[in-house]
C-alpha cells in the first residue's frame, strides 16, 4: 500500500495553484492519473520521486516512510526505490543504450539483470546505439528498461506514450503491462488517452486544478457522466472518434452536446447525422436547481 498526502503551492500558467491531494494505492496495482494539462499530475509524480519539495506532506510506501513533514523525514530521490520514465525520456546522450542501462545498476548488483531486460524489452539490436539515433518508440523502450534495472518497488510513467503513433503505442502498452506483472510492480501512469486508461489501469484518479475530483475503476468513471439521466433522450450524432477499441460519440441533444462511449461494434453502425436514442438504466437521475 502506498499512502500519499501532499500539500504544495505550484506556480502554474494561471497563477498560484494549490496541489492538495490524498490518495492510497494498493500494492501491485496499476493506477492512472488523469486530467487536463496543468492539473498537477507531473508535479505529483515528482513529489513522490522526491524531486520536488513540499510544504506539508506524508508519503509511506509499505513500511518505509519516504516523507513526513511533521517528523522532518524527507528521503532524497536516491534513497526512494522508484523507477521513473520521463515524458521526454531523459536518456543520457553520451552513453549507448546498454551503457544507459549499466549506469542504472546499483553497486554490487549483478550485470545479469541488464542482460535480462535487454532480452525482455527486445533491445538486443539497439544496445550499442546512442539515444540520438533512435526513434521515439525505441527511446521509450530504453527508458522503460533503464527504469527497471534497479528493481524498483514503484514504477512511474509520465505520459510515456503520448508522442507515439497508435501502433507503437499499443505495442508499448503491452510491454508496460508485461513488466508490471512480471516484476510485481506498483505502477503509476499519467495518461490522457481514455482507451489507454481503460485498457491498462486498475484504478483512476482524476485531477483538476490540484485536487482529486473523481476516482474509481476507469470504465465506471468514464461512463458515469453527470449528463446521463434515467430519461430517454433523442439526439443527433455529431461526431464519432475512434480510440483504439472504443469510440466516443458526440450527440447533440437540444442545444447540448453529450459524449457517449460505445464499443466498436455499436460505433460501426453509427454515422454522423444519425438520429439516436440515449437511455440510462443504472443510475438515478440527478437534479440540479437552475
Amino acid at each position: 500500500m502506498i499512502e500519499i498526502s501532499v500539500h504544495k503551492k505550484l506556480q502554474s500558467a494561471s497563477g498560484t495553484m494549490l496541489l492538495d491531494v490524498q490518495l492510497e494505492i494498493e500494492k501491485g496495482k496499476l493506477v492512472t492519473l488523469y486530467g487536463k494539462s496543468g492539473a498537477g499530475k507531473t508535479s505529483l509524480l515528482k513529489i513522490i520521486a522526491g524531486l520536488l519539495p513540499v510544504e506539508k506532506g506524508r508519503i509511506q510506501v509499505e513500511n518505509s516512510i519516504w516523507l513526513d513533514s511533521y517528523k522532518g523525514i524527507n528521503l532524497i530521490p536516491q534513497k526512494r526505490n522508484i523507477g521513473l520514465v520521463f515524458q521526454e525520456y531523459a536518456l543520457f546522450p553520451n552513453m549507448t543504450v546498454k551503457e544507459n542501462l549499466l549506469f542504472a545498476l546499483a553497486r554490487n548488483q549483478n550485470k545479469k539483470s541488464v542482460n535480462d531486460l535487454i532480452e525482455i524489452i527486445d533491445l538486443g539490436d539497439l544496445q550499442y546505439r546512442k539515444p540520438d539515433t533512435l526513434s521515439g518508440g525505441q527511446k521509450q523502450r530504453v527508458a522503460l528498461a533503464r527504469a527497471l534495472v534497479k528493481k524498483p518497488q514503484v514504477l512511474m510513467l509520465d505520459e510515456p506514450l503520448s508522442a507515439l503513433d497508435l501502433e507503437m503505442r499499443q505495442k508499448l502498452q503491452e510491454y508496460v503491462l508485461q513488466v508490471h506483472k512480471e516484476f510485481k510492480l506498483t505502477t503509476i501512469l499519467i495518461s490522457h488517452d481514455i482507451s489507454e486508461i481503460i485498457k491498462m489501469s486498475d484504478y483512476l484518479f482524476e485531477l483538476d486544478y490540484g485536487k482529486i475530483i473523481n476516482q474509481g475503476v476507469p470504465t465506471e468513471v468514464f461512463t458515469h457522466n453527470k449528463d446521463f439521466t434515467k430519461f430517454k433522450l433523442t439526439g443527433e450524432v455529431i461526431n464519432v472518434v475512434k480510440q483504439d477499441f472504443i469510440s466516443i460519440i458526440t450527440v447533440l441533444i437540444g442545444k447540448d452536446l453529450v459524449k457517449v462511449v460505445a464499443d466498436d461494434n455499436e460505433a460501426k453502425k453509427l454515422n454522423i447525422g444519425d438520429k439516436v436514442l440515449i437511455a440510462s438504466k443504472a443510475f438515478n437521475p440527478i437534479i440540479h436547481k437552475l
Binding site: A49, L51, P77, K79, A106, R146, A147
Partner: peptide, 23 residues
Amino acid sequence: LSISLKEASYVLGKSKLTTLFKV
C-alpha cells in the same frame, strides 16, 4: 542541459558527484 537528465540520474540512485562527472 535538460533538468530531467540530472533528475533521471538521481532517481537511478546516483550521487550528485557521480551525476556531475558521468552525466
